[in-house]
Design a protein around this nucleic acid. Structure first.
Length: 297
DNA sequence: AAGACGTGGAA
DNA sequence: TTTCCAAGTCT
């Protein structure tokens, strides 16, 4: 089953590559001196988190832990504390776990092999491909939310991609991937950047898009999204909110925290206890003694 | 395979 | 004010 036909791949390639060269943001993890570790740190932090909020934490993180071994030598709780308010603090724990694994089994060097990357905690399909592509200039399909949206529009002609990645999307991305590794790597980050800056979720700037004459969605008159409602998760009153409040107390208090301090953040005792138990189960919080907690050592 | 998992800024 | 969304991963 063919999708809407598009311009020949080489034309799309040069169109995106030229646009990227002219419009790419200067981000620290894209500079030539950014190490594979720096790229990996940025990828962990950028999971579900905007660039602007990542930047200051990224800088502080790499200054403190310039190599995986530096991080591995420190307590996981320090990683959680340094993570600050980036959100999804399990990522900090997993990044510490990845650093530990890299130090223990890869000689302290971030592996350049996709499978080895995928085996690290916190590294899924996207992050493995991103690190292999961006840090090691390999040829991989890099499918993140930006790329999926650009392809949904430009190739398939719909405003938004499906909720979960489909085989058809992988096929499209594979077909469009340039043959040469170096070109493929720049293409990957270029399509991502296009999705981040122009082909955005809310209000795309189609007038400024280099693909406007090729884009199936544009050519179809930008029909509105028709699929099932994309559920927005409520946050107020959830365990996630309580976990966030509890962990904020632990982060800001250097050292041990008595139960009473934690009890102040949420009035409902059952949910509060459940949230704290969850944090302990996740390894984000460590019970020291009866009614005393701290970040993990 | 649907749901859990933080946080804050923009519309 | 409410809703949506931001370079996902794990179970």
């Amino acid at each position: 089953m063919a999708t809407t036909s598009t311009a020949p791949a080489p034309l799309l390639h040069s169109t995106v590559l030229d646009w990227y060269e002219a419009h790419a943001r200067d981000l620290p993890w894209r500079t030539p001196d950014a190490s594979p570790w720096a790229v990996m740190v940025s990828e962990f932090m950028l999971q579900q988190t905007p660039v602007k909020r990542v930047l200051p934490v990224y800088e502080a993180w790499l200054e403190r832990w310039p190599t995986p071994a530096d991080l591995a030598a420190d307590a996981p709780g320090e990683a959680v504390r340094m993570w600050g308010r980036l959100g999804y603090p399990r990522r900090a724990l997993r990044l510490h776990g990845a650093a530990t694994a890299i130090t223990a089994t890869h000689g302290g060097e971030v592996p350049d092999d996709h499978a080895a990357l995928l085996a690290l905690p916190g590294v899924g399909e996207y992050t493995a491909a991103a690190v292999a592509s961006f840090a090691f200039r390999q040829r991989h399909v890099v499918l993140d939310t930006n790329v999926r949206r650009v392809f949904a529009r430009a190739v398939t002609g719909v405003e938004y991609p499906a909720q979960a990645t489909t085989a058809a999307e992988r096929r499209t991305a594979t077909t469009l991937l340039p043959e040469t590794a170096e070109t493929a790597a720049t293409w990957a980050v270029g399509v991502m950047e296009l999705g981040a800056l122009v082909c955005t979720a809310r209000s795309p700037e189609c007038g400024a898009c280099p693909l406007k004459r090729h884009c199936a969605w544009q050519l179809a008159g930008r029909p509105p999204y028709e699929g099932p409602a994309r559920r927005g998760q409520t946050y107020e009153g959830t365990d996630r909110q309580v976990r966030g409040k509890l962990l904020a107390v632990l982060r800001e208090a250097h050292g041990e925290v008595p139960q009473a301090r934690l009890d102040e953040v949420w009035p409902e005792p059952v949910q509060r206890a459940r949230a704290l138990d969850g944090l302990v189960a996740d390894g984000l919080v460590e019970p020291v003694a009866q009614g005393v907690y701290r970040l993990p050592r």
